[in-house]
Simulated assay, not measured.
Amino acid sequence: MNDQDACVAQATDLVATHFPHALGAVLGGSAAQGRATPSSDLDVAVLLPDSDTSRREVIRHNGRLAELFLNTLADVPEFFEWDRARRRGTVLFIYDQGLTLTDPHGHVSRTREQARALIAAGPPMLTHTEREQSRYSLTCYMDDLRDTPSTNRHEQLVLADFTLREAAHLLTAHQGAWTGIGKWLPRRLLSADPALGKALLQGHRAVAEHADPMPLVTMAEQVLDLVGGPQREGYAHFWRK
């Protein structure tokens, strides 16, 4: 049994043990892609009858950590729209790209079709207010990163992280692509714009390895140029309309 088969077997047993009333389940993440390590958790989406409650849980089953995305059938459309609105589509991608563990009545198959339609439609565009706020945030992080001396390594490293994250947020939005957090940020960034995404990641690495902020600053400026340029004087954010 290879690693992927072992993960499928563990996830299937988890669902049967903890959710015998489940309408279906899907294994997602690195385990479904054959990239799991011995310490990787299992990402499992479980469809539940409407008498149950939608929620997110983390449990340990037979020694392995599992993150569970539990949704009643009636809650799926609303939850999928919420997941899409975040522009990350975490659970949408589990249903889109994951491995079906059990689907006795075809509910998982139909839910996967819903997820794939939303993935194909892409994330929502940023509103004008969201875009301007992101431009302003990236400009601030970029300016501070440029001005922070390499002797202040902790500040420099934190600013590099925030600059990369905000630049990725803006660039993926500009490309109409999905974004991500954690390990999914570089994956989504490279998928959205391979050339500029790679340059941003290399710029971030230059700060980490050589205390040189300028490659990342230069790439952040390129991202800003795509969406109207740096946002400094003239920016206003109103607490009430």
Score class of each variant (00 low, 15 high):
Arg35Leu: 15
Thr37Ile: 00
Ser40Gly: 10
Asp43Glu: 08
Val46Ile: 15
Pro49Arg: 06
Pro49Met: 06
Pro49Asn: 11
Asp50Gln: 00
Ser51Leu: 13
Asp52Gly: 12
Thr53Trp: 12
Arg55Leu: 13
Arg56Ala: 14
Ile59Thr: 15
Arg60Met: 11
Asn62Lys: 15
Asn62Glu: 15
Gly63Met: 04
Gly63Ile: 08
Leu65Asp: 14
Leu65Phe: 05
Glu67Tyr: 08
Phe69Gln: 11
Phe69Met: 12
Leu70Trp: 03
Asn71Gly: 08
Ala74Arg: 13
Val76Met: 00
Glu78Ile: 00
Glu78Thr: 09
Phe79Ile: 11
Phe79Met: 13
Glu81Ser: 10
Asp83Arg: 03
Arg84Phe: 02
Arg86Glu: 15
Arg86Ala: 14
Arg87Ser: 06
Gly89Met: 06
Gly89Thr: 01
Thr90Cys: 09
Val91Phe: 05
Val91Asp: 10
Leu92Lys: 01
Phe93Tyr: 10
Ile94Ser: 05
Asp96Asn: 13
Gln97Val: 06
Gln97Ile: 08
Gly98Thr: 02
Gly98Lys: 03
Gly98Ala: 05
Thr100Tyr: 01
Leu101Ala: 06
Asp103Lys: 02
Gly106Asn: 05
Ser109Leu: 08
Ser109Tyr: 07
Ser109Cys: 09
Thr111Ile: 03
Arg112Ser: 07
Gln114Glu: 05
Gln114Arg: 11
Ala115Asp: 02
Ala117Asn: 09
Ala117Thr: 15
Ile119Lys: 09
Ala120Val: 08
Ala121Asn: 02
Leu126Ser: 07
Thr129Ala: 14
Arg131Glu: 14
Ser137Trp: 09
Leu138Thr: 12
Leu138Ala: 08
Leu138Pro: 07
Thr139Phe: 12
Thr139Val: 10
Cys140Arg: 08
Cys140Tyr: 03
Cys140His: 04
Met142Pro: 00
Met142Leu: 12
